[in-house]
């Protein structure tokens, strides 16, 4: 199953991946409109971690032994046939049990229509995830 991997030696913490993820999951999908109208309503599902010059972008690892699926009270967090871990927005009630157990801390709150848990979904309607495409230095690979 293809996953997103990071190459810390090439990440320059520019955060263009965070911007691309934000735009991809916005309503308008247009960068200027999305930032103007939707900023602060939700976050990107990818986080650039930084410690001095060391940095890398982190998102859901779609773990084989995903603790979030176990912890989910409603059964909203499941694994789809491709192997990706996905959250069903219609079932999620925002109890944050998944946030409580995610070892990478890559699940966040999305409180736009109702409060739900949001995380990387590997951009199912794209060939290559938005963050991987947006990285100007090939510090993210999809393989």
């Amino acid at each position: 199953m293809k996953k997103i991997y990071a190459k810390p030696e090439y990440c320059m913490a520019c955060r263009l991946c965070e911007i691309a993820c934000f735009v991809k999951h916005s309503k308008s999908k247009k960068i200027i409109k999305a930032f103007r109208e939707e900023r602060g309503e939700f976050q990107a599902r990818i986080i650039v971690e930084q410690s001095g010059p060391v940095s890398f972008a982190l998102q859901c690892r779609h773990c084989e032994d995903a603790g979030c699926i176990e912890a989910c009270l409603t059964g909203a967090m499941t694994r789809n046939p491709d192997g990706a871990v996905v959250c069903d927005e219609n079932k999620c009630v925002g109890c944050w049990s998944c946030i409580m157990v995610c070892p990478y801390g890559v699940i966040n709150h999305d409180r736009r229509r109702k409060k739900i848990a949001a995380k990387c979904d590997l951009c199912p309607d794209k060939n290559t995830p938005a963050c991987v495409e947006a990285c100007p230095n090939e510090a993210l690979v999809y393989e």
Binding site: C14, R15, I19
Partner: peptide
């Protein structure tokens, strides 16, 4: 200013 989204990429780079 119409196009700037205050994303701070320029500052970081």
């Amino acid at each position: 200013r119409e196009r700037c989204i205050q994303c701070e990429v320029c500052a970081r780079q």
